[in-house]
Structures are given as structure tokens and as C-alpha cells.
Design a protein around this nucleic acid. Structure first.
Lengths: 307, 307
DNA sequence: AGTATCAATAGAGTTTATCTATTACGCAGA
DNA sequence: TCTGCGTAATAGATAAACTCTATTGATACT
């Protein structure tokens, strides 16, 4: 059976493509690494490395084995992490991925209580377009992610957090601004601004426009909710903005007008997700409940459905 | 870092719950296993085993670690298998899971050519209710499975094979038997027989009955297509049977009548599935193409869509 | 109390991993 | 063509690990 050390050496070599440097990285001497990789090849009975004096290459099989070795080593690392957490309680950094259209407006409500509850936890927040969050979660870039539903990946645990209404906004001098209540038919042929592709809001607003017969202004896609707000304020068009964004960035300012719409179910559904194999499963479950509780108690615009 | 040997010992102990027996299983002496597991616990800094004289137990953490160790060891085994296949070509047994409503009627067309193409391959076919096939595939009970779509598991590779029409059948003296062409409205209030729950056909026929306003005879659910056929022949009701079944088991017999239905899209979609991490990926891709080719050439009732 | 069962401990032997020192190979430049 | 440089492989010594046999210690059963 190949040893974990040998697999580590192979992974190091696959990344450095250079025996001496790979050995350095592993804190062993070059002959050690050479010999062990020879043993590995002999044990497996196959060539993994193409040795030539003009650079080291892995064989196709070598690359495949190295890729699998990475998974194996991650599994072993997880076992160690798990033991460490169990022995010393949790301490360290959780890397949290959030969509830019939600993170800055939700996290300020969450982080203080999270910190109070888990003082030894370090939260490292990274914004990413939601379309790539699930994949990055799996690849190990994040430990935890706030994701828009629906997501169907069986190797992720998905816990629903809440639903966030999308509110229709327009410029104060827009002809819709004077209406008391906006109905479905008012939206026909309206010009609608949306986030650029890669954001869940993009796809959702696209569908809404289809349903209402509104025109999506594809040439004016926003790169952030703030740019959308500015364009709406300038009268370029109307837009659907998430309730939490409205709450924190618009509030009572009269730069743009929030419309009353008698159409239900314009909302996005938000969930917390982590790798099924995560060593922090129970912590993340606790965090799920914490966020749901905060949403229920402090954020009345959100809809928290029973689990 | 824990060694693979130590993880193996832990897994053996977790299954035997007995040091001596676990040691025997691993072909080492009991002190060896004891000492190594002590080392493992010391390295990880946690208790994995509850030692008492009234039986050995694992701690909750021990169980969790053992479960992860199994995955790690499987990963290493995969690496060895991969190398072995690459060195010696494929030989051995592929365990194929099939739904009972498809396997016996499809495989006779496939197996001979498969055997001709891969003489050193051993096919071990197991019938399982389709609802459990995906899970069993992941758990390692099968290497490959023929599954009804849709299936959305991201840790499986799903390759569409073909679509198989479902044909409406009734007893020769049934009042529909005399109709040249059966239309949607003819089905209203008809009594329909279906497979029992757990089969994809069950769910699909349930939906069809909803759409057509037909009555599903829940008290007469079939445990096999053959029992359905018998009940249809006895005039209990009508049924939707897969085209391949009709071809092989009914053919020109006049025991029951196959009706002409002018409703399209009554068909089931069949795919081949394997674990994403399978070492046989390229073989399974070849098999996919082989089956698609056979379906196209020899089985005109099937619909093979371009990939 | 005596015995059987089971896991832990002790100490020796063997295997394995790693190190230092050296060799072998190819390439670039004089 | 020779020399010097960079690279990986080989040899031999040393240290660490794994495993074995033999034994002890603890508990349950008779």
C-alpha cells in the first residue's frame, strides 16, 4: 500500500515539477523524495513521472493519481482537524463566501452576535458572484457560504435561512412613483435594470421581465446594487432591489422611490451551505439557527419559514 | 500524521469491536493493533475507543473518524486499482445495478456485444428498485447503474442512453381494444394499473393518471411487469408498459392488446450512471456509446437523442 | 478462590525512512 | 572537445517505526 508520505511527495512534485524544490517544500532532502517516489512507482507497478533533464513531467496516470492523492490527503487532514476541534474546542478561521448583493447588508446584523457567541472564531468573509460560490465551496476556497436557492448539489449541506422580498424602485420623478399601488399590468413595457450575469438576481429579474412583459435593459447591467441604485435615480429605468439593501442603503432618503407592488412572491430564497464532509457541521448548524433567529427578531422584512 | 495502517486498524476495530478479532482480521497480533491504536489516539490527542471489559466501544468521535477513515482508505484503494488497470488492462468484475422493469428486457441485447468487446470483463448484474439505485451506487454496492432520469446527484456521472416509450395495453375484450386510435379523452375515468412504489414507473404513471383524469388502482399495484401484464389480461384495468417489455414478453401474443395512442411524450428516459471518482470512467464512457449504438441499430422502438 | 478472557505493557528484532556523500547524466559556453 | 553547472539517481550509515513474543493486570464467571 502506498504511504501517505509518498502521496504527499507525489503531490508536491506534481506542483513543483522539480525534485529539489519539491523536496525542499516537504522539508526533506532530494534523495529522500527521489527514493520514495521510486518506491511508489514500483509499488503501484506503473510510471508516474517522466524524468528528463529538460524538466520533470508527470505521466497522464501520474496526474490522475496526484489528483486523487490530494483528496486522500484532505481526508486525512480533516480527521486531524476534527480531532483537534474536539480536543481544544473550536478556534481558527472560518472562510465565509457571500454574494455581493447580500453580504454587506446582511452580515452587519449577524457578525456582532456571531462574535459574541463564538469569541474564538475568526470569520474571513469573501464576496463572490453567487454562480461560483457552490463550486468554490467544494474546491475548498470557502468553508461556508451564503447562497441563493435553488441549489442542488448532493455533496453540499443546504440549510434554508430566509426569503428576502425584492422591492421595485424608480426615480422620484418616474411616472410610476405617483401611483399608490403598482399592479402587474403597470409593469408591461417598463424598462428594467438588473445585475450583470453571474448573479442570481440577474436570472431572477430576467424571468420576472418575461412574466410581466417588461424590457430588460441588457446594455445597462449593474456591477453592484449601488450602481443600479444610481442608474435608477438617474431615471434610466426601474429595478428590483433586495429588501435588506433598501433597508441599509436607501432607508428614508428620497433619492429613489420604493413602490408598493401588489404582486406576491417576488423574493429570493437564501440558504447557508457547507461541504457534507465538513468537520464543522455542528458549528454550522448552530450558525444556521443563529442567523434564522436574528432574521426573525431583528429583520422584519425577511420571511423566515419553519424548517 | 496518522498512518494508513492506523486508520485500517481503527476501521477493523470499529467493525469487530474486539481487539483480538480485529487484529486477526488485519493479520497482526493483538499487541500490535493495541499499540498502534494508542499511538493514533495520542497523535490525534483524543479518545477514540472506550475500553471496558464488557466489550469495546468507539466514542462518538471515534465513529466519526472511522467513517472518514473508510473514505480515505477507499481513495487509496482506488489509486491502486487505477494503477493496476493501467498496468494490466482491465480485468475483473463490474457490478451493474438495473431496475427490474428494464434489466431483463434490455440486457439480453447488450450483454453479448459487451462480452465480445471486453472478453476479460465480468458483469455481475443486480436488480434493485430504481429509487435506491443512486444511493447504492454511491455506497459502493454497484460500480455502474442503469437509472431512470431525472437524477440530480453531483457526485455521479450521468450519461443519457435513450428514451423508451410507454405503451398502453388492455385486455383483448376491453372496450378500448376495438378503438383504432385512443385519445386523451378516452382515458378519462379509466382504471389504470401501475408498479408499486419505489419504481420510477409508479411515480410517472401516477402523474399520467392525474393529467388524464384516470383512476390509479392503488390496491392492485404490481410487483413486477409480469404481474401487471397478468392483471391487465384479466381485465382488472389498463396499464402503461415499457416498449422493450412489450417487445420481449408480449410480442405477437394476443393475451393482451397494445393500443395506438395519439399522445406523445409518454416515455421514460434512461441513463447510465457511475461514481464521479470511479476508476473505470473511460471504460464506462465506452459502454455508454456501445449501448447507444446498439439501441440505435437493433432496437427501433427506442429513441436515441444526440448527446 | 480459581479460572478464563481480554487488553495493556515490555523488550527484542526487523523493516522502513531519512540523511550525507557521491556518482551519473545532459547541457551551455569557452 | 573540454569544463562547469544543474539536476536526479545511487550507496551506505543512522535513526525511527512497526511488529513480534512473552508477560502482566484487570475483570467476569464458576
Amino acid at each position: 500500500m502506498p504511504s501517505l508520505r509518498q502521496l504527499e511527495y507525489l503531490v508536491a512534485l506534481s506542483q513543483e515539477l522539480h525534485f529539489r524544490r519539491a523536496a525542499e517544500r516537504m522539508n526533506v532532502t532530494q534523495p529522500t523524495l527521489s527514493v520514495q517516489l521510486q518506491h511508489l512507482e514500483k509499488d503501484l507497478g506503473v510510471a508516474l513521472i517522466e524524468r528528463s533533464h529538460s524538466g520533470v513531467m508527470l505521466t497522464p496516470l501520474g496526474r490522475e493519481v496526484a489528483a486523487r492523492a490530494i483528496d486522500v490527503l484532505r481526508g486525512v487532514q480533516d480527521i486531524q482537524d476534527l480531532a483537534h476541534i474536539s480536543a481544544n474546542g473550536f478556534e481558527g478561521t472560518i472562510r465565509l463566501g457571500v454574494p455581493p448583493t447580500l453580504g454587506p447588508y446582511l452580515l452587519p446584523h449577524i457578525v456582532p452576535k456571531l462574535h459574541a457567541e463564538y469569541p474564538s472564531m475568526n470569520l474571513y468573509v469573501r464576496e463572490e458572484k453567487p454562480v461560483s460560490l457552490a463550486q468554490q465551496l467544494l474546491s475548498g476556497k470557502h468553508d461556508l457560504a451564503i447562497v441563493p436557492m435553488p441549489i442542488t448539489r448532493s455533496d453540499l449541506v443546504i440549510q434554508k435561512l430566509f426569503e428576502e422580498p425584492l422591492r421595485l424602485v424608480c426615480a422620484p420623478d418616474h411616472h410610476l412613483a405617483s401611483k399608490k399601488v403598482v399592479t402587474k399590468t403597470d409593469l408591461k413595457s417598463e424598462r428594467v435594470l438588473a445585475m450583470e450575469s453571474g448573479h442570481h438576481l440577474h436570472d431572477q429579474v430576467t424571468r420576472l421581465c418575461d412574466v410581466f412583459g417588461a424590457t430588460l435593459l441588457r446594455d445597462y447591467e449593474g456591477t453592484s446594487l449601488d450602481t443600479l441604485r444610481l442608474m435608477v435615480g438617474m431615471g434610466v429605468g426601474i429595478a428590483f432591489l433586495p429588501a435588506l439593501y433598501i433597508r441599509s442603503e436607501i432607508g428614508t432618503r428620497d433619492e429613489i422611490t420604493v413602490l408598493d407592488v401588489n404582486i406576491s412572491n417576488i423574493r429570493r430564497s437564501i440558504a447557508l451551505a457547507w461541504r457534507q464532509s465538513s468537520v464543522h457541521a455542528s458549528l454550522f448548524n448552530d450558525i444556521t439557527h443563529l442567523i434564522r433567529t436574528i432574521a426573525k427578531q431583528d429583520l422584519p422584512e425577511l420571511i423566515v419559514t419553519p424548517e
